[in-house]
Amino acid sequence: MEAIANPRITCVYLNSYVGKNVIIVGKVIQLRGDEALIDADGNITAHLNREAHLSAGNGVQIIGKVNPDLSIKVLSSLDLGTGVDYNLANSVVEISHQHRNLFSYD
């Protein structure tokens, strides 16, 4: 089967994933037109697509490509509401990098 995996990352991992597709779970800090500032263990700028429906203060999962300037070109986004445990999400990112054999192909 095709090896399509989108690693889960936070802000600190952006550097290692330039040009790759990733999943980021974070909190929407600010919306400016088609740009959003997202906090995932650090602030990330996301360039939204047309279909994005985010609201400031809510959690969001974005899947997108990491640009060379470490912003994200969003391919798909999902509003997660307000009940998201961000510490849990960040722990999952750490765990998924410690146990790569369960989570990613490389």
Partner: peptide
């Protein structure tokens, strides 16, 4: 390979996703 589903339900609380990934790692 495929999974023959007995039951599928929508996830209401997103934290269940993260919890599941941790549980899978824990069992492994």
């Amino acid at each position: 390979r495929h999974v023959g589903a007995h039951y599928i339900r929508a996830i209401d609380d997103f934290n269940e996703v993260n919890y599941h990934l941790l549980e899978a790692t824990y069992v492994h």
